[in-house]
Design a binder for these strands. Structure first.
Length: 490
RNA sequence: CGGGGUGUGGCGCAGUUGGUUAGCGUGCUUGACUGGGGGUCAAGAGGUCGCGAGUUCGAGUCUCGCCACUCCGACCA
């Protein structure tokens, strides 16, 4: 299936594109910029959803669902917000088709023009705040803590599977609070939830921080984010959490009576992660042999491959392996026993290796005689023969070990690819020759940020919370109180 | 949306200065032998050469338009 697979070294983006398609995660569709997420890729998303959903529930949130379509007029209520999204909105103008009078199939019925055009949501702040206005009257109605799992559309010029597509799946949380303090705490809490999810489930270390004004979400007062470093040294924004202040409350008139009987605008947050996380997962762990999945998100955690010549041997192997499969499933481990006779063992080895299955067991007549099994781990590609006795405990341990190893490796990579630059020359040299995260002083102005971006393509990925240190801006030489994180980014 | 590249059986590609019946690898089907890292042999099936016009006696090949993918810019999760 995946012979002639590109290596990361020769062409990283080609490697990524081929991997996504050949590992059966997703493919391009007949609709420009839109992808088909295939069952194996979608299974990863489902695992992500399940874990995140639980974390949202555990922090007091409930799921709801809002419309795909947003009246155009809603969009213009918050000025910054419109400006941020206007250029990439799909617009519904008609509601009916008719047979082409000239006999060429079907055409839009010009008589069925919508009174008011509808925008296909690029994000749901406007429709949600228009709704919250009716839900919130009293301080007793607060906080409102809602999440929705949905698709959104952003008409992107250049698309890449998972990383940037015209339509994508995500979750968007939208909360309303009585006080500024509470809303800020919520924003930070959700950033922390994302960071925890990224590190514990994706085994992907992330930096936490605040976006610079240039990189901030349109309509937000502050955007908190988690940022990960990919193997090619480019940064990927993996999740964002926005403190929206009272912008949307004012735009949509969401007020409540507080305990002093005074009409007050509510404070808002929104936060989201998307199927882009699957791209992040791929570019964090996978190698030239294909996909590498952290056990906690792998649709198949253990694959068992029987090796046999005669039907009779397969029966013997199956009898030996069935109780083990049963025990593993009891422990909640996703096991696949691939006893298909239509593929050879060698072919299967490569197939599951390419698809990133963390653990592979192979068992044949020799093992039956010796009471052993061959166990191979995807992360290190090591294999060894071990006693079949105690195999389930062994696997349980190994899955945890692989999860940890992937995180450690990714963290070591990030550490090795994080640099400090103190001069402009040094900064430019690092961007060109080393890539990675570059910690450098910045004077805090949007102008300097813009100039740096124009001259080097590097952007400020985030401003860390800690690490106060006196210094001078690498570009302007003006005083700076802390280093910020620069990188080339996706 | 601007600039470059690519588009030929499912996938990856070759196809000469325009010339007959469009090839190769892989995959697919059937059978036999096989089976501890993508097996071997044999026999088969499978193509509107991205789409549409044009030039020509003749177009996969030349011209124009469009579409898709891809890389580079502007934009973004």
């Amino acid at each position: 299936m995946a012979k002639d697979f590109s290596s990361r070294e020769e062409n990283y983006s080609q490697w990524y594109n081929e991997l996504v398609v050949k590992a059966d995660l997703a493919e391009n569709s007949a609709v420009r910029g839109c992808m088909v997420i295939k069952p194996y890729g979608y299974a990863i998303w489902e695992k992500m959803q399940a874990a995140l959903d639980k974390m949202f529930k555990d922090t007091g949130h409930s799921n709801a669902y809002f419309p795909l379509f947003i009246p155009k007029s809603f969009f213009s209520r918050e000025a910054d917000h419109v400006e941020g999204f206007a250029k990439e909105c799909a617009v519904v103008t008609h509601y009916r088709l008719k047979k082409d009078p000239n006999g060429n199939g079907i055409v839009v019925d010009d008589e069925a023009k919508l009174e008011e055009e509808l925008i296909v949501r690029p994000t749901s702040e406007t429709i949600i705040w228009d709704t919250y206005k009716n839900w919130i009257q009293s301080y007793r109605d607060l906080p409102v803590l809602i999440n929705q799992w949905a698709n959104v559309v952003r008409w992107e010029m250049r698309t890449r599977l998972f990383l940037r597509t015209a339509e994508f799946l995500w979750q968007e949380g939208h909360t309303a609070h009585a006080t500024e303090q509470e809303a800020i705490e919520e924003t930070i809490q959700m950033m922390n939830v994302y960071a925890e999810f990224a590190e514990n489930w994706l085994a992907m270390p992330v930096l936490k921080g605040v976006k610079s004004p240039n990189e901030r979400f349109a309509g937000a007062l502050d955007t908190y984010c988690i940022e990960a470093l990919m193997q090619d040294g480019k940064a990927l924004q993996a999740g964002t959490s926005h403190f929206l202040g009272q912008n949307f409350a004012k735009a949509f008139g969401v007020q409540y009576l507080n305990k002093e009987n005074k009409l007050t605008y509510v404070w808002a947050t929104s936060w989201g992660v998307s199927t882009r996380l699957i791209g992040a997962l791929i570019m964090t762990h996978s190698d030239d042999h294909g996909l590498v999945l952290p056990p906690k998100l792998a649709p198949i955690q253990v694959v068992i491959i029987p090796i046999y010549k005669k039907e009779e041997q397969l029966i013997q192997i199956s009898e030996k392996i069935e109780p083990i499969i049963h025990k593993l499933r009891e422990k909640g481990i996703a096991v696949k026993y691939d006893n298909r006779d239509t593929y050879k063992p060698g072919w299967k080895f490569n197939e599951y290796e390419f698809k990133g299955v963390p653990i592979r067991l192979a068992i044949g007549p020799r093992d039956l005689e010796n009471g052993t099994v061959e166990i191979a781990r995807r992360d290190t590609l090591e294999k060894e023969i071990i006693p079949i006795e105690g195999i389930t405990e062994n696997i349980e341990y190994l899955l945890a070990e692989i999860q940890k190893n992937l995180f450690d490796k990714a963290l070591a990579f990030r550490t090795q690819n994080t640099f400090k630059a103190d001069t402009w020359e040094e900064f430019k040299d690092m961007l060109e020759n080393k890539k990675g995260f570059i910690l450098a002083h910045w004077d805090g102005t949007a102008e300097t940020e813009q100039k740096i971006k124009e001259e080097t393509k590097a952007t400020i990925r985030l401003i860390p919370f800690d690490g106060d240190e006196e210094g001078q801006c690498i570009y302007s030489g003006k005083p700076s109180k802390k280093r910020v994180v620069f990188a080339l980014s996706y």
